[in-house]
Protein backbone atom coordinates (compact mmCIF):
# COMPACT_ATOMS: atom_id res chain seq x y z
CA UNK A 1 0.00 0.00 0.00
CA UNK A 2 1.44 3.33 -0.94
CA UNK A 3 1.96 6.09 1.52
CA UNK A 4 -0.69 8.12 -0.25
CA UNK A 5 -3.28 5.39 0.14
CA UNK A 6 -2.55 4.90 3.80
CA UNK A 7 -2.86 8.57 4.49
CA UNK A 8 -6.12 8.62 2.59
CA UNK A 9 -7.56 5.82 4.71
CA UNK A 10 -6.45 7.45 7.96
CA UNK A 11 -7.99 10.68 6.80
CA UNK A 12 -11.31 9.00 5.92
CA UNK A 13 -11.34 7.03 9.19
CA UNK A 14 -10.88 10.17 11.22
CA UNK A 15 -13.62 11.90 9.28
CA UNK A 16 -16.03 9.06 10.03
CA UNK A 17 -15.01 9.08 13.68
CA UNK A 18 -15.77 12.81 13.85
CA UNK A 19 -19.15 12.25 12.17
CA UNK A 20 -19.92 9.47 14.64
CA UNK A 21 -19.07 11.75 17.58
CA UNK A 22 -21.36 14.48 16.27
CA UNK A 23 -24.16 12.03 15.53
CA UNK A 24 -23.83 10.49 18.98
CA UNK A 25 -24.38 13.84 20.67
CA UNK A 26 -27.18 14.92 18.39
CA UNK A 27 -28.99 11.57 18.48
CA UNK A 28 -28.92 11.24 22.26
CA UNK A 29 -30.22 14.80 22.55
CA UNK A 30 -32.97 14.04 20.03
CA UNK A 31 -33.89 10.83 21.83
CA UNK A 32 -34.09 12.68 25.12
CA UNK A 33 -36.07 15.58 23.64
CA UNK A 34 -38.39 13.21 21.79
CA UNK A 35 -39.06 11.24 24.93
CA UNK A 36 -39.75 14.33 27.02
CA UNK A 37 -41.91 15.95 24.34
CA UNK A 38 -43.90 12.75 23.87
CA UNK A 39 -44.67 12.65 27.58
CA UNK A 40 -45.17 16.30 28.30
CA UNK A 41 -46.24 18.32 25.26
CA UNK A 42 -49.91 17.48 25.67
CA UNK A 43 -49.86 18.76 29.24
CA UNK A 44 -48.71 22.28 28.35
CA UNK A 45 -51.67 24.60 28.31
CA UNK A 46 -52.79 27.86 29.82
CA UNK A 47 -54.00 26.13 32.98
CA UNK A 48 -50.58 24.51 33.51
CA UNK A 49 -48.74 27.79 32.98
CA UNK A 50 -50.94 29.80 35.32
CA UNK A 51 -51.76 27.41 38.17
CA UNK A 52 -50.17 27.08 41.56
CA UNK A 53 -48.74 23.75 42.71
CA UNK A 54 -51.29 21.18 43.83
CA UNK A 55 -51.50 17.68 45.23
CA UNK A 56 -53.59 16.69 42.22
CA UNK A 57 -51.35 16.33 39.16
CA UNK A 58 -54.04 17.50 36.76
CA UNK A 59 -54.67 20.67 38.76
CA UNK A 60 -51.01 21.52 39.36
CA UNK A 61 -49.19 24.28 37.53
CA UNK A 62 -45.86 26.03 37.41
CA UNK A 63 -46.66 29.71 37.73
CA UNK A 64 -44.79 30.22 41.02
CA UNK A 65 -41.77 28.21 39.87
CA UNK A 66 -41.75 29.87 36.45
CA UNK A 67 -41.86 33.39 37.85
CA UNK A 68 -39.28 32.39 40.50
CA UNK A 69 -36.92 31.20 37.78
CA UNK A 70 -37.38 34.44 35.83
CA UNK A 71 -36.68 36.52 38.96
CA UNK A 72 -33.55 34.50 39.70
CA UNK A 73 -32.41 34.79 36.10
CA UNK A 74 -32.80 38.57 35.92
CA UNK A 75 -31.37 39.34 39.37
CA UNK A 76 -28.41 37.00 38.87
CA UNK A 77 -27.61 38.71 35.58
CA UNK A 78 -27.88 42.17 37.15
CA UNK A 79 -25.47 41.20 39.93
CA UNK A 80 -23.03 38.92 38.13
CA UNK A 81 -22.56 40.64 34.77
CA UNK A 82 -21.11 44.02 35.86
CA UNK A 83 -18.93 42.42 38.53
CA UNK A 84 -17.73 39.60 36.29
CA UNK A 85 -17.00 41.74 33.24
CA UNK A 86 -15.37 44.41 35.43
CA UNK A 87 -13.11 41.87 37.10
CA UNK A 88 -12.25 40.36 33.73
CA UNK A 89 -11.27 43.77 32.33
CA UNK A 90 -9.15 44.54 35.36
CA UNK A 91 -7.32 41.24 35.27
CA UNK A 92 -6.71 41.38 31.54
CA UNK A 93 -6.03 45.07 30.96
CA UNK A 94 -4.92 46.72 34.20
CA UNK A 95 -3.35 44.18 36.52
CA UNK A 96 0.38 43.77 36.02
CA UNK A 97 2.11 40.44 36.27
CA UNK A 98 2.89 39.71 39.90
CA UNK A 99 2.70 36.98 42.52
CA UNK A 100 -0.61 38.35 43.73
CA UNK A 101 -1.95 38.30 40.20
CA UNK A 102 -0.97 34.66 39.73
CA UNK A 103 -2.66 33.89 43.03
CA UNK A 104 -5.90 35.54 41.87
CA UNK A 105 -5.75 33.83 38.53
CA UNK A 106 -5.32 30.34 39.97
CA UNK A 107 -8.10 30.94 42.46
CA UNK A 108 -10.59 32.13 39.89
CA UNK A 109 -9.88 29.19 37.62
CA UNK A 110 -10.26 26.78 40.52
CA UNK A 111 -13.50 28.40 41.66
CA UNK A 112 -15.09 27.36 38.38
CA UNK A 113 -14.65 23.75 39.44
CA UNK A 114 -16.05 23.96 42.97
CA UNK A 115 -19.22 21.84 43.42
CA UNK A 116 -22.30 24.02 43.40
CA UNK A 117 -23.56 22.87 46.78
CA UNK A 118 -20.49 24.49 48.39
CA UNK A 119 -21.70 27.82 47.01
CA UNK A 120 -25.06 27.01 48.56
CA UNK A 121 -23.49 26.56 52.00
CA UNK A 122 -21.58 29.81 51.57
CA UNK A 123 -24.75 31.58 50.46
CA UNK A 124 -26.68 30.23 53.44
CA UNK A 125 -24.16 31.53 55.96
CA UNK A 126 -23.24 34.83 54.29
CA UNK A 127 -26.37 36.00 52.48
CA UNK A 128 -29.23 34.22 54.20
CA UNK A 129 -27.96 34.44 57.80
CA UNK A 130 -25.15 37.02 58.19
CA UNK A 131 -26.72 39.58 55.86
CA UNK A 132 -30.17 38.60 57.07
CA UNK A 133 -31.73 38.05 53.66
CA UNK A 134 -33.33 34.76 54.70
CA UNK A 135 -34.49 32.36 52.02
CA UNK A 136 -35.30 35.21 49.65
CA UNK A 137 -34.92 35.53 45.90
CA UNK A 138 -32.13 38.03 46.53
CA UNK A 139 -30.13 35.54 48.62
CA UNK A 140 -30.59 32.91 45.90
CA UNK A 141 -29.54 35.30 43.15
CA UNK A 142 -26.45 36.42 45.09
CA UNK A 143 -25.43 32.79 45.60
CA UNK A 144 -25.89 31.92 41.93
CA UNK A 145 -23.97 35.08 40.98
CA UNK A 146 -20.97 33.78 42.90
CA UNK A 147 -21.40 30.46 41.16
CA UNK A 148 -21.22 31.91 37.65
CA UNK A 149 -18.75 34.75 38.29
CA UNK A 150 -15.66 32.65 37.47
CA UNK A 151 -17.16 31.63 34.13
CA UNK A 152 -17.97 35.23 33.20
CA UNK A 153 -14.52 36.43 34.27
CA UNK A 154 -12.75 33.77 32.26
CA UNK A 155 -14.97 34.38 29.20
CA UNK A 156 -14.32 38.14 29.39
CA UNK A 157 -10.58 37.65 29.65
CA UNK A 158 -10.41 35.17 26.80
CA UNK A 159 -12.46 37.42 24.54
CA UNK A 160 -10.29 40.46 25.34
CA UNK A 161 -7.18 38.38 24.69
CA UNK A 162 -8.51 37.47 21.25
CA UNK A 163 -8.76 41.13 20.14
CA UNK A 164 -5.81 41.80 17.77
CA UNK A 165 -2.97 43.75 19.28
CA UNK A 166 -2.93 46.11 16.27
CA UNK A 167 -6.34 47.46 17.29
CA UNK A 168 -5.10 48.41 20.75
CA UNK A 169 -1.92 49.96 19.39
CA UNK A 170 -3.74 51.94 16.72
CA UNK A 171 -6.10 53.34 19.33
CA UNK A 172 -3.27 54.39 21.62
CA UNK A 173 -1.40 55.84 18.64
CA UNK A 174 -4.34 58.10 17.90
CA UNK A 175 -4.14 59.45 21.42
CA UNK A 176 -6.98 57.53 23.08
CA UNK A 177 -6.71 56.93 26.80
CA UNK A 178 -6.80 53.44 28.23
CA UNK A 179 -10.47 53.72 29.23
CA UNK A 180 -11.40 55.09 25.81
CA UNK A 181 -9.57 52.22 24.17
CA UNK A 182 -11.35 49.69 26.33
CA UNK A 183 -14.77 51.24 25.96
CA UNK A 184 -14.72 52.06 22.25
CA UNK A 185 -12.45 49.41 20.78
CA UNK A 186 -11.86 46.40 22.96
CA UNK A 187 -15.30 45.85 24.50
CA UNK A 188 -17.23 46.09 21.20
CA UNK A 189 -14.71 43.80 19.53
CA UNK A 190 -14.87 41.30 22.39
CA UNK A 191 -18.59 41.57 23.05
CA UNK A 192 -19.54 38.49 21.01
CA UNK A 193 -17.47 36.22 23.23
CA UNK A 194 -18.44 38.00 26.43
CA UNK A 195 -22.17 37.78 25.73
CA UNK A 196 -21.85 34.12 24.82
CA UNK A 197 -20.05 33.47 28.10
CA UNK A 198 -22.70 35.35 30.07
CA UNK A 199 -25.60 33.53 28.44
CA UNK A 200 -24.04 30.10 28.85
CA UNK A 201 -23.33 30.77 32.50
CA UNK A 202 -26.88 32.05 33.08
CA UNK A 203 -28.23 28.95 31.37
CA UNK A 204 -26.27 26.94 33.92
CA UNK A 205 -27.61 29.06 36.75
CA UNK A 206 -31.27 28.39 35.93
CA UNK A 207 -30.64 24.66 35.95
CA UNK A 208 -29.19 24.66 39.46
CA UNK A 209 -31.12 23.06 42.31
CA UNK A 210 -28.75 22.07 45.10
CA UNK A 211 -27.35 25.49 46.10
CA UNK A 212 -30.81 27.05 46.08
CA UNK A 213 -32.31 24.34 48.28
CA UNK A 214 -29.47 24.89 50.74
CA UNK A 215 -30.00 28.64 50.74
CA UNK A 216 -33.66 28.09 51.50
CA UNK A 217 -35.61 27.89 48.27
CA UNK A 218 -38.91 26.16 48.96
CA UNK A 219 -40.97 23.63 47.11
CA UNK A 220 -44.54 24.70 47.78
CA UNK A 221 -45.01 28.41 47.15
CA UNK A 222 -48.69 29.26 46.81
CA UNK A 223 -48.13 32.79 45.52
CA UNK A 224 -46.31 34.53 42.69
CA UNK A 225 -43.20 36.27 44.04
CA UNK A 226 -43.47 40.01 43.49
CA UNK A 227 -40.29 41.36 45.06
CA UNK A 228 -36.68 40.25 45.59
CA UNK A 229 -37.34 39.75 49.30
CA UNK A 230 -40.08 37.17 48.71
CA UNK A 231 -39.62 33.48 49.32
CA UNK A 232 -39.47 31.47 46.15
CA UNK A 233 -39.10 28.21 44.30
CA UNK A 234 -37.57 27.55 40.89
CA UNK A 235 -38.40 25.17 38.08
CA UNK A 236 -35.67 22.56 38.64
CA UNK A 237 -36.86 22.13 42.25
CA UNK A 238 -40.46 21.78 41.09
CA UNK A 239 -39.39 19.25 38.44
CA UNK A 240 -37.33 17.23 40.88
CA UNK A 241 -40.18 17.24 43.36
CA UNK A 242 -42.65 16.00 40.75
CA UNK A 243 -40.37 13.31 39.36
CA UNK A 244 -39.90 11.75 42.77
CA UNK A 245 -43.63 11.48 43.46
CA UNK A 246 -45.28 8.06 43.13
CA UNK A 247 -48.33 9.22 41.16
CA UNK A 248 -48.00 8.85 37.36
CA UNK A 249 -49.62 12.21 36.65
CA UNK A 250 -46.71 14.07 38.22
CA UNK A 251 -44.25 12.45 35.79
CA UNK A 252 -46.23 14.08 32.97
CA UNK A 253 -46.24 17.40 34.80
CA UNK A 254 -42.48 17.10 35.23
CA UNK A 255 -41.98 16.40 31.52
CA UNK A 256 -44.07 19.44 30.64
CA UNK A 257 -42.08 21.61 33.04
CA UNK A 258 -38.83 20.31 31.54
CA UNK A 259 -40.03 21.42 28.10
CA UNK A 260 -40.72 24.92 29.45
CA UNK A 261 -37.29 25.06 31.11
CA UNK A 262 -35.64 23.90 27.87
CA UNK A 263 -37.55 26.58 25.97
CA UNK A 264 -36.17 29.26 28.30
CA UNK A 265 -32.65 27.94 27.66
CA UNK A 266 -33.23 27.81 23.90
CA UNK A 267 -34.52 31.38 23.86
CA UNK A 268 -31.46 32.52 25.80
CA UNK A 269 -29.08 30.73 23.48
CA UNK A 270 -30.95 32.24 20.55
CA UNK A 271 -30.45 35.72 21.96
CA UNK A 272 -26.74 34.99 22.42
CA UNK A 273 -26.40 33.83 18.82
CA UNK A 274 -28.28 36.85 17.52
CA UNK A 275 -26.11 39.35 19.37
CA UNK A 276 -22.89 37.58 18.50
CA UNK A 277 -23.72 37.70 14.81
CA UNK A 278 -24.89 41.30 14.99
CA UNK A 279 -21.75 42.52 16.74
CA UNK A 280 -19.41 40.46 14.69
CA UNK A 281 -20.79 42.08 11.57
CA UNK A 282 -20.20 45.51 13.03
CA UNK A 283 -16.61 44.87 14.02
CA UNK A 284 -14.22 44.85 11.08
CA UNK A 285 -10.50 44.84 11.28
Amino acid sequence: MSKYNRNYIVDKTFQWFAIFCTAFGVLSLLLFLGNICFDGIGRINWQFMTSLPSRLPEKAGIISAFVGTLWILVLTAIIAVPVGVGAGIYLEEYAGKSRLFDFFEINITNLAGVPSIIYGLLGLEVFARLMNMGGSILAGACTLSLLILPVIIVATRESLKAVPKSLREASFALGATKWQTIRMQLLPAASGGIVTGIILSLARAIGETAPLIVVGALAYVPFVPTSPTDEFTVMPIQIFNWISRPQKGFAIDAAAAIIILLLITFVMNGIALYYRNKWQKKVKW
Binding site: G135, V214, L218, A219, Y220, F223
Partner: peptide
Protein backbone atom coordinates in the same frame (compact mmCIF):
# COMPACT_ATOMS: atom_id res chain seq x y z
CA UNK B 1 -52.29 33.23 54.97
CA UNK B 2 -49.11 32.45 53.06
CA UNK B 3 -48.10 28.90 53.81
CA UNK B 4 -44.77 27.86 52.29
CA UNK B 5 -43.33 24.37 52.40
CA UNK B 6 -39.72 23.37 51.76
CA UNK B 7 -38.04 19.99 51.54
CA UNK B 8 -34.63 20.18 53.18
Amino acid sequence: VRVTVGLS
